[in-house]
Design a binder for these strands. Sequence first.
DNA 1: CTGAATCCTAAGTGATACTG
DNA 2: CAGTATCACTTAGGATTCAG
Lengths: 119, 119
Amino acid sequence: MEEQITRSFNIPAEATLEVIGGKWKLLILCHLNCGPGPKRTSELKKAIPDITQKMLIQQLRELEEDGIITRTVYNQVPPKVVYEMSELGNSLQFILDQLGEWGEQYIRRREWKSSCSEG
Amino acid sequence: MEEQITRSFNIPAEATLEVIGGKWKLLILCHLNCGPGPKRTSELKKAIPDITQKMLIQQLRELEEDGIITRTVYNQVPPKVVYEMSELGNSLQFILDQLGEWGEQYIRRREWKSSCSEG
DNA sequence: CTGAATCCTAAGTGATACTG
DNA sequence: CAGTATCACTTAGGATTCAG
């Protein structure tokens, strides 16, 4: 069950994308970043309504395995599980910001181009 | 044939990943960056032996459509097509570097952790 | 509330053969 | 040399159901 996958990359940058490239991971990290403190599973689900429960858990697990976030379980009824950015996760912050900035510029540029072709 | 896809993103950073997230795109951009001037299709194929011709062309097309690279066709026999980073592509350089740096650190960290568990 | 398990589809990828 | 077309395969992602 513990199928250990050895991932190899041609260039280091690919390792980074492997970590943050999941379909919902940016969004999840984004929500874990906004506001301090850990977030409950249900909070994340509420914050990202379009994600299925399966994908939410799956992406969270991958982020956890990659050491980006931490998962804390409270043994109580009803169950309570919270996720939080790890130190390694916080080291991603700068890259996340850069990705966001470039993306903004890119989107603006495309809107500008398409508005021209409409003329 | 010209199927126009409207891509929507929850956060701008996702747009960036959409552009550079293709399986071979980082590698292609990497090779277009190393050394000045444009690269021929066959040069890229030689530089990235594992990629199939289909994937090479496909990823190049997507990069071109996204404005990251330029494609120049010389009308001659035998055909000659060269690809080159565009201005927009060059604006990616910083992010590419950051992704690489973080990836390096991440890989080192994982090697360190696995060497510990080997005991 | 959290999340595991199953089944299913769509998309991505690859091998191969073919065209100008 | 550069690119297309087709088929086969793998995988990510999603709907649903069940469990502690």
